[in-house]
Design a protein around this nucleic acid. Structure first.
Lengths: 197, 197, 197, 197
DNA sequence: TATGAATGAGGCTTCATTCAT
DNA sequence: GATGAATGAAGCCTCATTCAT
């Protein structure tokens, strides 16, 4: 039944998705330059021209993965702002929710996370966006009286991103700690240094 | 003027150092793969064979830079432990000293810092070593009664490294903050979360 | 006509064989070091990357040629042993057969022969293997009473290999003598020095 | 006492001879192309410019070594002709003398021998000259009645050179046989195949 | 949809050789 | 007589990408 030139059971959508997945793993493991198209297609049991059927270039498939990461991450952080009027005793719990979501995302999408946070040339920029989101939240929360203002919130936000980044690599992805464990530790450390008194 | 042979005023030590410096800048700016020997020697107004007079390969000169970074960093962190018997009121100041030294080092050696902390394939490993050093310090200090033990010190150490890393990029190297300003902010945030009560 | 992509009528097997043949000629004529991949592909009207499509390296294609030589030579020499019970009057004829096969092989495969016997770094080893094969044959034949034992058969075997080697170059490949003529001369000289009485 | 730029105790003649000797060993061991000027001068504890003080090029020093070999070899073979009127019973002894001289020469000058006989591009030509010398001797000796003429003397001469060549490598230079032992074996094998009746 | 075959562009490295002192 | 420093020339190899089927 298969037409000439068509692999039995082959399906564009499937091949494309497969290439994307393998590429993600390769980029994540070896970085952009050491990742070779030839390796990707080999693992997908396809050929190089087929790759170019779905992606215009190496750069483009990488970009698609990076964009995918960005999208998911943005949607997460934008949901983490605290509502006004929350009781102080619930504060740790509310803050934890946002952080937890982020950590779970990274736990569930290692390759994508590695790409967006560590191998992309824009990683720094991505993290800065994240830091800005966090800063906005912190400032509002401080204005609401939850936090003192003895520290520069932009610095705190950036520091927080750095902390998260490092713990993802060293603790989450190594399996030493779960997303929830890390959440608790971070929140504790954070609050006791930020909480108004 | 001479097209071949000895360039007027040429000196092996000088040429080598020049290549090393330019290479550091190139690696720092473009990463390992995008850095080309041809560019390095062009900027040094030398030729490719001259490069190989002083360095066995691209990999080797990179390694030399990485090692140089490692050495300086290690000597800094190993000097930052607190002596026993220090008065609590001087604690922030003492802790700040170690951190300050590290930040000043990064401020003064951007390219080297970028190489060791961001472009090297061993960057993660290097940071982990640093985190271990810090953890040891923290644990001793906790034992001495300066800190409480409500948090996992290994997590704190790694988080701290992440914070530092991120602030170096976003604040120190952008010129937004000086090493001393950052030191103060980090110590403040840190202590209020760690200090025993 | 196409500048890129598939050449009209191109066929992997053919290209590979072509490269192999040209490489054999080049190696045979110029030796290993003076043979350039760029020349090989030029003569094949291909480009350098294509070469690497079929052979991992210069060394590897050379090895393949050497192995090919070894294989054929080994199969020839191992077939040249005399059966027991052969009449003495047919001895010269039987011995000639083995030698003749070898010389015909060299006559028909100059480049390969030159590679295995003269340009390979293992040429000496190859010849020694051949000498050992020959020695084994001679010893069996001596045991069967065809030859006397007044001489060291290992020396004779090595000397014989040297004779063959030299005559191949000076007589066979120059066209001064045919394989059959040489066979006769060598057998004559050999037997009258070896024959029992 | 040494003047500026002059190594203590340095002497042109000595340096030149040293370079020549080391070069001979290197060429003999590694062949022409794998022998590097840089290695030669290193072993001589000199520098590359010094090399060019004594030899115009790599090719030239090699040529000098090859010429040196040629000279010595030629003087040997030209002395090996048999005088007319020698008694038949002394023939083996007289033939042996010439051969012995050659083998002793190779035994005493391995590197030079290897260069002239195996690494030079003219090795084949050199051997042919030798073969011609030998052929002339053989023909005269045949004319004098010492040998029969059932074989082509040019073929015998070339074969003999091949035998010698191979035995030098496999027996003489490996220490398995002395020059005198080989001489005896070769003469025996040779005579019983050549002697008239 | 898929592929066998091919290539443009470009990087790393080596080596014989030379100049100014 | 000797050398520290430098280079012109050239070769091997890799990789993203494309064409014709």
């Amino acid at each position: 039944m298969a037409k000439r030139g068509r692999k039995k059971g082959s399906d564009g959508k499937v091949s494309r998705a497969l290439l994307l997945k393998i590429a993600a793993d390769e980029f994540a493991e070896h970085g952009y330059h050491k990742t070779k198209i030839s390796t990707i297609v080999q693992k997908a049991e396809l050929t190089q021209p087929t790759f170019y059927l779905y992606f215009k270039s190496k750069e483009v498939i990488f970009q698609e993965l990076e964009d995918s990461f960005r999208l998911k991450l943005t949607s997460l952080t934008s949901n983490s702002r605290l509502e006004k009027g929350i009781e102080e005793e619930f504060l740790p719990h509310r803050i934890a929710e946002g952080l937890s979501a982020v950590l779970h995302f990274f736990a569930d999408h290692q390759s994508l996370g590695r790409i967006g946070f560590f191998v992309s040339e824009n990683a720094s920029q991505i993290k800065e966006q994240m830091a800005q989101q966090i800063e906005k939240n912190l400032l509002e929360e401080a204005k609401a009286g939850y936090f003192h203002l003895n520290v520069d919130m932009n610095i705190v936000a950036n520091g927080l991103v750095g902390m998260i980044e490092r713990l993802i690599i060293t603790k989450l992805w190594t399996g030493q700690n779960t997303a929830d464990e890390l959440t608790k530790e971070i929140v504790t450390a954070l609050l006791y240094g930020l909480k108004n008194n």
